[in-house]
């Protein structure tokens, strides 16, 4: 288990002890979306969304959610993570709590309420820590919608893009160690030869990246802030381009920056996915207790980079059909 993840886990356990002592009644700051209209099929569940209302992505998701779901007035409440401790009433009155991002997840991790919690906007490695109850005494149902794509979907994309490629490489840090293991296992099972390197600190990045590229035909970016961040991505993209080795990114912006392709879920996809989960919850009271990867996704290709590398890639729509066929086949 990674140091980062362990740290977060530890923090969560410590906060569990502290938060149980908070008074359930505090000052309530509630933002009610009054523009939602009555509807015959309007949802009856009361939903509490915890997120940073000033964060553009959270704003967009909440706005999207309010459009997708038809809620009766007063059924959707939004709180910031720092308001939770003083607003236990809101958490107990809600039928479902949805957290957006890491801070929000931390704020409800030790909640002494039986309101079910759905953790969102988190990668699997972090979300798993919240699904697993920190104290073994969690009174509520927990579920999660992961941010990233399942590894087999990424490998399927690689297979469809480059059917002749056999050598894959990737870097991993503590944060992405479990993803790296999963990738290594699945890739080998699919017949690929893998070359990987563990990054302990950013000073090792350039040297180890060049070393894995030497034996590689394709580099896969595993989400890890130590390896792929705003400052390191330029040298990774330029380095791979020098040796004519494409990079498979994990986000739309990675592809815009210069990666050859990525399969990803946009905020719109995640919003729709979340809507479906909420509707399922209202019907059945069930949440994806083991967490789930998004089923709605899209594919982005950087045509300019592909052309420059003399690569002929299928269209995103064709790739999408191929991915669906492969996933249905499995």
């Amino acid at each position: 288990m990674s140091t980062d993840v362990q740290t977060i886990k530890q923090q969560l356990k410590e906060e569990a002890a502290i938060n149980r002592s908070h008074s359930p009644f505090s000052t309530v700051v509630v933002v009610v979306l009054g523009f939602l209209l009555f509807s015959p099929i309007a949802m009856a569940a009361k939903i509490l969304v915890i997120g940073d209302v000033e964060h553009p992505l959270h704003q967009k998701l909440i706005h999207g959610l309010s459009k997708e779901l038809t809620l009766k007035p007063g059924k959707l409440t939004i709180l910031r993570p720092d308001q939770i401790a003083k607003n236990s009433l809101a958490t107990t009155q809600a039928d479902l709590i949805i957290t957006l991002g890491l801070s929000a997840a931390k704020s409800v991790n030790n909640l002494n309420s039986d309101t079910p919690i759905l953790f969102t906007l988190l990668p699997k490695v972090l979300a798993d820590n919240f699904i697993e109850c920190p104290t073994q005494l969690c009174p509520q149902k927990r579920g999660a919608l992961f941010l990233e794509q399942p590894m087999n979907r990424r490998l399927n994309l690689i297979h469809l893009l480059f059917p002749d490629i056999k050598k894959l490489s990737f870097l991993y840090g503590d944060f992405s160690a479990s993803s790296a293991n999963e990738l290594d296992e699945l890739a080998k099972k699919a017949g690929y030869i893998t070359d990987k390197a563990h990054i302990e600190n950013k000073d090792q990045l350039s040297r180890k990246f060049n070393a894995v590229l030497e034996q590689s035909e394709l580099f896969i970016a595993l989400p890890d802030p130590l390896i792929h961040n705003r400052n390191s991505i330029p040298q990774l993209l330029l380095g791979s381009y020098r040796y004519n080795i494409p990079i498979i990114g994990f986000s739309k912006s990675y592809v815009s920056a210069g990666a050859i392709a990525a399969v990803f879920s946009s905020l719109e996809d995640l919003t729709k996915e979340l809507t479906l989960l909420i509707q399922t919850f209202e019907r059945s009271g069930q949440l994806p207790s083991a967490g789930r990867y998004p089923s709605l996704y899209r594919i982005q290709i950087n045509r300019n980079v592909a052309r420059s590398m003399n690569l002929h890639l299928p269209s995103p729509s064709l790739l999408r059909k191929g991915l669906l066929a492969l996933e249905e086949g499995t």
Partner: peptide, 24 residues
């Protein structure tokens, strides 16, 4: 950016364009 939170913007945010048409 090493300290960037690995959720939200990390997956959904922007990254500077590196391999622009002019550099390819």
């Amino acid at each position: 950016a090493d300290s960037q939170e690995p959720s939200n913007s990390y997956f959904l945010g922007e990254v500077p364009t590196v391999l622009s048409a002019n550099r390819l």
